[in-house]
C-alpha cells in the first residue's frame, strides 16, 4: 500500500518527526506554515486547511497548559508546553479530513478541545 504520509525530516530522523524548537515559523521551501494557538479549551484555528503534496509545518503556541495535540489517523502527536513553539511537520499526500484532539486532560472543557485538518487537492 502506498505510503499516505511522507514526513519531513527536520533533524535527520526517519519516520515521523515531531519537531520542537523555539522560534516563529516562516513559509520556507514551499512549506505551508500554520500557526496554531492552544488555550483552554480551544485550538485556534481549529479547522486547518492544507494542500495535498506540500509539506506542512504546524507551529503551536500553548498559552496556559501542557496541552496535547494528537491526530490518531496520522499517528502524529506532541505535547505543547507553554513558553515555546512546538513544530509538527508532515506532508499530506491524500485529500481528506483528519480529526485532532487535545489528549492531555486540561479541565472542564477538555472534551471540547478538538479540531480537524482538511487536506484539499
Amino acid at each position: 500500500m502506498k505510503t499516505l504520509w511522507r514526513v519531513v525530516l527536520g533533524v535527520g530522523l526517519s519516520g515521523i518527526c515531531l519537531g520542537a524548537a523555539l522560534g516563529v515559523g516562516n513559509d520556507a521551501g514551499g512549506e505551508q506554515v500554520i500557526r496554531v494557538t492552544a488555550q483552554r479549551f480551544t485550538f485556534t484555528p481549529n479547522e486547518i486547511v492544507v494542500k495535498k503534496g506540500r509539506p506542512v509545518v504546524l507551529e503551536f503556541s500553548s498559552l496556559d497548559f501542557v496541552h496535547g495535540f494528537n491526530i490518531p489517523s496520522l499517528k502524529l502527536r506532541a505535547d505543547l508546553p507553554p513558553g515555546k513553539i512546538t513544530r509538527v511537520r508532515f506532508t499530506p499526500d491524500r485529500a481528506g479530513e483528519h480529526p485532532f484532539v487535545c489528549d492531555n486532560f486540561c479541565g472542564e472543557g477538555h472534551e471540547d478541545m478538538h479540531g480537524r485538518i482538511v487536506v484539499k487537492e
Binding site: N70, P72, V101, D103
Partner: peptide, 12 residues
C-alpha cells in the same frame, strides 16, 4: 486499548 483515540478514549 485504543477505542477512540480521536476522542481521547485510550490509555497512552
Amino acid at each position: 486499548f485504543d477505542l477512540a483515540p480521536q476522542w481521547d478514549w485510550a490509555t497512552r
